[in-house]
Amino acid sequence: MAPKRQPASSTLQSQSQSQPQSTATSSLTSAFTPTKPSSSSTAYSSRPNAVTDAQQILDGLWRNYLKETPQRVKLIDTFMAFLVLVGGIQFLYAVVGGNYPFNAFLSGFGATVGQFVLTASLRIQCNPQNRKEFESISHERAFADFVLGSLILHFFCVNFVN
């Protein structure tokens, strides 16, 4: 909790310190250190710093994400990003090119949204931080649920597509 009390002037310093430190030491400290200073800085500093602060937050977020996330979860995230992309393209097409076969558009869009949500659920259930929320659900069970949900989803989509 020490870094929190540091004045704003030391922000940059601690930021630069934290990066080499985090690569070497345990992940827990790395998860906390890059962000703590930013909180204190936004709390105390004036306007001009806000943009750089936001940048720092995002930067720290991204780096933290890359470091913290297991390979498998990254795979899931890639899939989710792909789904967002596909959904976005479909939506854009519906806005620009018209949504004439409305059934088809709906089931296509519904499939991406539904699959996204199901994948997000899988990701949440597999997240070790949520362990105590999902005591009754093992990773295998979560995956089986995911498969079941997807099967139902795509059955409905195919049935609805006309």
């Binding site: 409305f102 709906l106 089931s107 519904g110 949204v113 539904g114 949500v117 199901l118 997000a120 659920s121 949440i124 259930q125 997240n127 949520n130 929320e133 999902f134 949900g149 139902i152 989803l153 409905f156 989509c157 049935n159 609805f160």
Partner: peptide
């Protein structure tokens, strides 16, 4: 808010809405 709520509600809504649209009378 809990992750449990997210999982259950999202699953219900995504699947349930599609399921309800299968009935012709309900449709869109």
């Amino acid at each position: 808010y809990s992750p449990r709520l997210y999982v259950s509600y999202s699953t219900w809504f995504a699947l349930g809405t599609l399921a309800s649209m299968q009935v012709p009378f309900v449709g869109f």
